[in-house]
Amino acid sequence: MNIIRTKEQLGPNVTKYVVDAPLVAAHRKPGQFVIIRVSDRGERIPLTIADADAEMGTITLIVQAVGKTTREMAMLNPGDSLHDVVGPLGKPTHIQRFGTVLCVGGGIGTAPLYPIARAMKEARNHIITVLGARTQNLLILEDEMRSVSDELYVTTDDGSRGTKGVVTDAIRTLVQSGRHIDQAVVIGPPLMMKFTSMLTKELGIPTMASLNPIMVDGTGMCGGCRVVVGGDVKFACVDGPEFDAHEVDWDTLIRRLGTYRNAEQAAAEQLDHMCRIGLHGGTPA
């Protein structure tokens, strides 16, 4: 039973859950993910692991309620259970002493970035973190990231926190001020990862990105999560989810993520309707 132990609202539609998953908690490494189902007729969705406590047998998931499944998850409360949790899946992040590591987090992408930054710090790297979000209340884990970073910069599109602008502005400023960066890790919305990767390529900074394609089984069977990296087809669930950002075909990834946009919209509207007429327990977050 994957009982939800605690639930905390981190921002509008962004919720942090601590969930029982002892095997995952004992085995997970930074960069890995789980696949969950909320209910018996639910779909399988991949979620990154933000943290874990092997002794307590719990993992931390940070989820933005965007589609039907994540919104149904937002209706669950401590004591409720997730129907299924399987993992940890994917290859762990390659952690080593690079020197100076730039950690770039966009929106909810900061959740999986946090354990990676911490492990990079423990490997005695100098950590420069740049966090970006549209607006202040969409920034998450700023304090946690600060605790594992030597330097931390924040950008928001509207200037409500940190510097007004986007993460690439902050990275450019850093490099222009003469900072040398040995390795970058970027996790966030695909478009943000694409632009960050274009910039770091221009600046000659090796960059890893964690990809979030559509998945079904997550164990190397269905091939739904295929991505193009360096001209070859790779499967994010077993070959990734992290890849050399400069080799990723971002446009194909972004396009394929839109495969079910119509179905997702219809499902979300149906859920709204069910909630309004009281046929669905709880209220949407």
Partner: peptide, 28 residues
């Protein structure tokens, strides 16, 4: 990698394991 190209594994898994043929299933 165009949209609408499936492996049979994915197509059948969605239909069979995930019951995508059933309107009640959340799997598209």
């Amino acid at each position: 990698n165009l949209l609408g190209v499936y492996s049979a594994n994915e197509y059948l898994t969605r239909a069979n394991l995930m019951h995508a043929y059933d309107e009640d299933s959340d799997t598209p």
